[in-house]
Design a protein around this nucleic acid. Structure first.
Lengths: 220, 220
DNA sequence: ATCATCTTGTTGTTTTTCCAACATACTTTT
DNA sequence: AAAAGTATGTTGGAAAAACAACAAGATGAT
């Protein structure tokens, strides 16, 4: 158990919580560790979520099937990240599955216990709530930004919206992006090849320069 | 002040909190009420947010300007709703403005105070945190659903994704939607007239029936 | 260095969307 | 009931995206 805690000690969820407090936290939040084999289901569509997860090791995938049965990947969960917290708090049946991409180990924490501090109002509870609010709010801001990009009508505008947001975030006209072309196309909801073509056009028009993951927005 | 509290007493933020506790809550969370004239700015881009808002009366608009200076409306805030909470918790400078659409009255609450219960761990604090987590998580789920619709490549698929989600939520193949055509087109990020045409096509293909805001998904 | 694999860019065709303009239907006001 | 205003549907041409197939470049393993 100590070993497990070591692996997640700089997770955003337990940021600024003393290592000594972690094990009492586990008790308080009814922490349970479960292991999954590659391809095993961690959470299933339609099954109530009372505990959210914190990935200790491995890699998970959140997937959803649409009305035609097409699979789409909503996100990839890496160690130290939490997942399913939104569904745990809205008390709504999830419409997605969580699958283990490789053998994985997950710590489940009781969402109710987290938001209702125990009688003695343990000091770490405060911090946990703060951290959780930060994480969820942050997801919120990121989702809103993604929508801002996707709402544009043309691929060109989607690209420029994404790139200027990135430029603002990194506080420079030159920056590296975290996505490869396919991932960026998926993020913006467009076709990769069409997006590549659009990038070339923008380069020819002198609006931007790029090379692999490096971009530079020119002028205005 | 009592009058003000009366107006927001069934807001989701203070759900299940006794009326007697409300005024002590206001003190604890450093509640401040401000009034705005029509068209006045409530919050401005780039200015740090330490308190989030709860609209008491009036109507607000959250707007954003893109890299070309085009204005887009992110959302409309009605009385009893909270706003700017995500930015308050991520400690990030907001990239949007909040404008008063009509004369409005806003209660601002200190986000830090909310997440760090006071020493005596007032009972309502627990509930407030729970409510806030619910509200933010809920927004999260809604944003994710919107992205699920917008990520589809064609207007037809966007429509069907939206309509099947609606059908699932309302647990029936027949249902009413809350948007008029223009609002639905904005939500999905497509052209209204093209969307109308697509709806007609779906009707002709026998995939759905509709009349004004009433829809019925046929067969599978 | 060679080969296989993966990523990115290019091009031409088909499909879809946008856009603008107008037609029709429904609402509200007078 | 007529008029004005608003919401929705229809259409055709122009623009853009999707799609498919392939080319070129980069990466990694043997």
């Amino acid at each position: 158990m100590i070993n497990e805690l070591e692996k997640i000690k700089d997770s955003l969820l337990i940021k600024d919580i003393k290592v000594e407090e972690l094990s009492s936290m586990l008790g308080c939040l009814r922490g349970v560790i479960k292991t999954y084999k590659k391809d095993e289901l961690v959470l299933s569509e339609g099954i109530e979520i009372k505990k959210f997860g914190l990935l200790i090791e491995g890699k998970l995938q959140i997937v959803q099937y649409d009305y035609l049965g097409n699979k789409s990947i909503l996100s990839i969960i890496e160690p130290k990240q939490i997942f399913a917290e939104a569904y745990a708090y809205v008390n709504k049946l999830p419409s997605m599955n969580v699958e283990a991409l490789v053998d994985s180990k997950v710590l489940f924490l009781d969402s109710d216990k987290l938001s209702s501090p125990c009688q003695n109002c343990c000091s770490f509870h405060k911090q946990l709530v703060k951290n959780l609010l930060f994480i969820i709010s942050n997801k919120n801001v990121n989702l809103t930004e993604k929508i801002e990009c996707m709402a544009k009508r043309t691929t060109k505008e989607k690209l420029l919206t994404f790139l200027s947001l990135e430029s603002i975030k990194q506080n420079s006209k030159e920056f590296y992006i975290q996505y490869d072309r396919q991932a960026l196309a998926d993020y913006l909801g467009v076709e990769r090849s069409a997006m590549s073509a659009e990038l070339s056009k923008l380069k020819n028009e002198g609006i931007l320069e790029y090379n692999k993951n490096w971009f530079k927005l020119l002028q205005k």
